[in-house]
């Protein structure tokens, strides 16, 4: 009996160390991702004036749309946080519902962004129109791609939470996911400021 308790304790500390490592490694990964965004921001900063005779940002962007997108994403970060609190408490039903709300908010955000892109392309303002538009589409699009992968990840995680319950693995997955989601939120704040607000300065 004593032996199994010791073995269980040993396994527990082994798992806890693994949690700690994975969390740390994911932070390092987020920093590498941030550096990639840093390049895209720098490129946008250099190229945003090079419109090659085409329209500039203040003629193309819509302030209300950008604000709506920002609010959607901020709210989704909040609901994601509520979901994490529920996960730490072990409340499966609440986890599922809060993350479902987060998922829908993210999906709406993505839909709005895609609509903006398709409108621009429809009006003939494409990736190859000018250096300014190239850097705009790639910076914002890369963020959108991250949101897409976040949604994919969230969807699969929810399916597995539903099937397997809130075990240690799932809580770990959810905390990584929430880190990722908040990270995308922060990047978006910078996009909102640098791309959309500064276009009207």
């Amino acid at each position: 009996m004593a032996h199994t308790v010791a073995a269980e304790l040993e396994l527990e500390s082994h798992e806890a160390a693994a949690d700690d490592r994975v969390m740390f490694g994911f932070w390092v990964y987020l920093m590498t991702d941030l550096l990639m965004f840093a390049v895209l921001f720098a490129v946008y900063a250099v190229l945003h004036g090079n419109t090659a005779g085409g329209p500039a940002g203040n003629e193309l962007f819509s302030k209300p749309l950008a604000l709506t997108e920002t609010l959607l994403l901020l709210t989704s970060s909040f609901t994601c946080g509520l979901g994490m609190i529920a996960a730490r408490r072990g409340n499966k039903a609440q986890v599922l519902s809060w993350f479902m709300v987060t998922f829908l908010l993210g999906l709406t955000f993505l839909g709005l962004e895609l609509r903006e892109f398709s409108q621009l392309i429809h009006e003939g303002h494409t990736l190859s129109s000018s250096a300014f538009l190239s850097s705009f589409f790639v910076l914002v699009g890369t963020h959108g791609l991250h949101i897409t992968s976040g949604l994919l990840w969230m969807g699969t995680t929810l399916v597995f939470v539903k099937k397997r319950g809130l075990n240690r693995h799932m809580v770990r997955k959810l905390s990584l996911l929430s880190l990722f989601w908040h990270f995308l939120d922060i990047v978006w704040i910078f996009i909102f400021t640098v791309v959309y607000l500064m276009a009207f300065v």
């Binding site: 250099v46 090659a52 190239s134 790639v138």
Partner: peptide, 22 residues
């Protein structure tokens, strides 16, 4: 490399001599 790929594949203007690239 992604930006260069966009230049070559999708005709973007990050590093081209034309279209405002640098």
């Amino acid at each position: 490399l992604f930006l260069l790929f966009f230049d070559r594949y999708f005709g973007a203007h990050f590093f081209t001599a034309l279209g405002g690239g640098d």
